[in-house]
Design a protein around this nucleic acid. Structure first.
Lengths: 183, 183
DNA sequence: ACCCCTTCTTGTCAGTGACAAGATAGCGGC
DNA sequence: GCCGCTATCTTGTCACTGACAAGAAGGGGT
């Protein structure tokens, strides 16, 4: 229990997410993390190899969570809202996921998780020509842009506090996308 | 010339932009910057006070450049393309501007520059009701999302190398926005 | 000639990430 | 019951970083 509690990796990940939520990724040090988890300053390095390794693990977890969330939404027009909700509910994950300079971009697990997310997005749009690609691009861009601007505090004067998701739903209506399986 | 060349601040800013372009903002240290500029390790601190102060100066410069670029484009539908072009041409600035954790968010100069950019965006959309707000939001989101996803390497399989701006122009057509001054 | 302010330097300190080497615990084989 | 083996975690150390303090160099005004 004391030396080998076997759960350290999970504890470290959870603790790291908490620290990131408080202070942002830049202000998190491996030593802070170790202190917060009550272990020695080199324990994190063993599990993640690197500081980038820690963030890689978080990015992988985030991609999987995002894919899971997207997989449950069938209506294309609501997919964007799901994306925005993910960005607010899993802010720490989202924060890391789109900062490739923080983690190991070519980690196999990460690449796989990312591919799954990307495939889900792609599959949500009917058709497979360049037009369909553009629709994927447009839908992803508007959702990602909204979520990112929101997180960086650039929309404070345009969007209220709790209703970000609802606000986005109305914004997304300006985008010309097909409804749910109109066949 | 040697001791007081009076241009150090500008030189440091330019050098910093170069370093950021090479290695990203996280990998830039004040001491690297000082070395690259050929001055002592504390010289940057004098001009910018802080590491965050350096990034604040870059963010201010970026906001002004962006505002200038946007001010020259009258056609609303091309505003997004201008935004995307700015993000690729001034990648280092863009990178910093939307990382509030890196700089002093409440710097007066920064707030002013940001307000000018925001006003320009706002003024480009006719009307002033909630509908107009939503159009601003939609246009900004899709441009920002596209630019951000592009920069983070998430669109590599969807968008070619040099034609990002053209590709975005086509994507943006899916957005329902009024043409240039349809009065 | 003097003062004063800005600009830049030298010196120093705690904190950080990475690495090396050692300690501890659990587990299978015999 | 004991021996090794390996994964897990600790202790010790190093170069580097950001921040700060104190001082030197230059320039302008009077």
């Amino acid at each position: 229990m004391t030396y080998h509690h076997g759960d350290l990796r999970r504890v470290l990940l959870d603790t790291a997410l908490g620290l990131i939520a408080e202070r942002g990724p830049n202000a998190v040090s491996l030593r802070d993390l170790a202190r917060a988890a009550g272990v020695s300053h080199a324990a994190p390095a063993h599990h993640f190899g690197d500081k980038a390794g820690l963030f890689t693990a978080i990015a992988v977890q985030g991609q999987r969570l995002l894919a899971d969330a997207l997989a449950e939404e069938l209506d294309l027009r609501r997919l964007g809202a799901t994306y925005v909700r993910f960005a607010t509910e899993h802010a720490s994950h989202f924060e890391i996921m789109f900062r490739p300079d923080l983690y190991h971009r070519d980690d196999p697990e990460l690449v796989a998780a990312k591919a799954r997310t990307s495939d889900l997005l792609r599959a949500a749009i009917p058709g497979d020509g360049r037009d369909a690609d553009r629709r994927v691009l447009a839908a992803w861009s508007i959702a990602h842009g909204f979520a990112t601007l929101l997180r960086s505090g650039n929309l404070d004067h345009l969007v209220g506090d709790g209703d970000a998701e609802a606000e986005f739903a109305e914004v997304a209506e300006l985008l010309d996308l097909p409804g749910p399986t109109p066949t």
